[in-house]
Design a protein around this nucleic acid. Structure first.
Lengths: 112, 112
DNA sequence: CGAGTATACCTCGAACTAAAAGGTATTACA
DNA sequence: TGTAATACCTTTTAGTTCGAGGTATACTCG
């Protein structure tokens, strides 16, 4: 027992990664900069977040990776699987829901 | 050292509480139901989140409380202080920023 | 050529949050 | 009388994210 659910706002790093990888395959180090860029510097995820997330996503079958030598150095590229696309849809919906809920709370003059 | 910052998405419970209390004073048990209601059931914060948050907010001077007997039972009502209003503004801005960042990441067809 | 910076991968430990459950007491109602 | 609802609170546990550290290769510039 003591069956604790994940915090209600978690999964955003995962969402961002899946979203980016839905466009094209990318490698970890690239994703670090990419997340910062596409969020307009609002969100910055360090390597200590990105790499473990990628590994976990791959273990769950949401991503598949391939090693690709580029200029003498090796990169690990990640791409979405069908399962990953489903996961992305789910997380996107979850996000919309909570985002909407908060927006509502902030905007509605709640004495109404 | 090992100076760990709070997670980038934290502070939403706090934001919701301050926002509600900016409208009128309320007591803990009421806030539990109120959060659920104003977020359209999207977010549900238990008493184990609400009460500690209220205590911490009061310790920081963002809230002040007064005990008020109602029908033989005692309620603890919380109200915003000036400091609390400042804190609300800050958290609201933080939220807008990260919310905007995520929206941007989700909507922009990032191959552009 | 050598030193420093950037790229690229990774892991571990600490800090922090939030979830759930449990605990007490009073009042309402059936 | 006994059960559900109100009202407060704390503690334990689980989970996520953060920062720092660690390795290694490539590039740049004096």
């Amino acid at each position: 027992m003591a069956q604790t659910n994940p915090p209600f706002m978690s999964g955003v790093p995962e969402l961002l990664l899946l979203r980016l990888l839905d466009q094209r395959e990318m490698y970890g180090y690239e994703l670090v900069r990419s997340v910062r860029k596409v969020t307009g510097e609002a969100i910055s995820l360090g390597e200590g977040v990105i790499y473990p997330a990628l590994h976990s996503l791959e273990r769950n079958g949401a991503l598949k990776s391939r090693r690709k030598p580029v200029g003498g150095r090796t990169r690990v590229y990640y791409a979405l699987t069908a399962k990953g696309r489903q996961r992305l849809d789910k997380l996107r919906n979850d996000w919309r829901r909570i985002q909407g809920g908060i927006t509502n709370a902030l905007e509605v003059p709640s004495h109404a």
